[in-house]
Amino acid sequence: MTDQPQTSTDKPSESPADNAAPTLEAEAVAAYLQKHPQFFAEHDELLTAMRIPHQRGDTVSLVERQLKLLRERNIEMRHRLSQLMDVARDNDRLFDKTRRLILNLMDATSLEEIVITVEDSLRQEFQVPFVSLILFSDNPMPVGRWVSSEEAQKAVGGLISGDKTICGALREHELAFLFGAEQSKEVGSTAIVALSHQGQHGLLAIGSRDPQHYKSSVGTLFLSYIADVLARLLPRHTHPLRSVR
Rank of each mutant, 00 (worst) to 15 (best):
135 L>C: 08
94 L>I: 13
92 D>A: 10
115 V>C: 09
99 R>F: 12
151 E>F: 01
99 R>T: 15
111 L>N: 07
142 P>V: 02
115 V>M: 07
125 E>Q: 10
105 L>D: 03
112 E>I: 06
131 V>H: 02
156 V>D: 00
95 F>L: 11
109 T>H: 10
122 L>S: 03
96 D>E: 10
142 P>G: 03
100 R>Q: 14
136 F>S: 12
96 D>P: 00
148 S>A: 08
135 L>E: 04
86 D>Y: 13
96 D>K: 03
139 N>Y: 11
116 I>C: 05
114 I>T: 02
87 V>A: 05
113 E>Y: 01
120 D>W: 04
94 L>H: 15
135 L>F: 02
112 E>K: 12
130 F>C: 11
97 K>G: 11
106 M>V: 14
147 V>F: 08
117 T>F: 04
157 G>L: 10
113 E>C: 01
146 W>K: 02
109 T>K: 13
98 T>Y: 02
98 T>R: 04
143 V>F: 08
141 M>I: 04
109 T>R: 12
147 V>A: 10
114 I>Q: 00
152 A>P: 07
108 A>K: 15
143 V>E: 05
96 D>S: 06
129 P>Q: 05
139 N>K: 12
111 L>G: 06
103 L>T: 08
100 R>A: 13
120 D>L: 03
143 V>C: 03
108 A>G: 06
96 D>F: 07
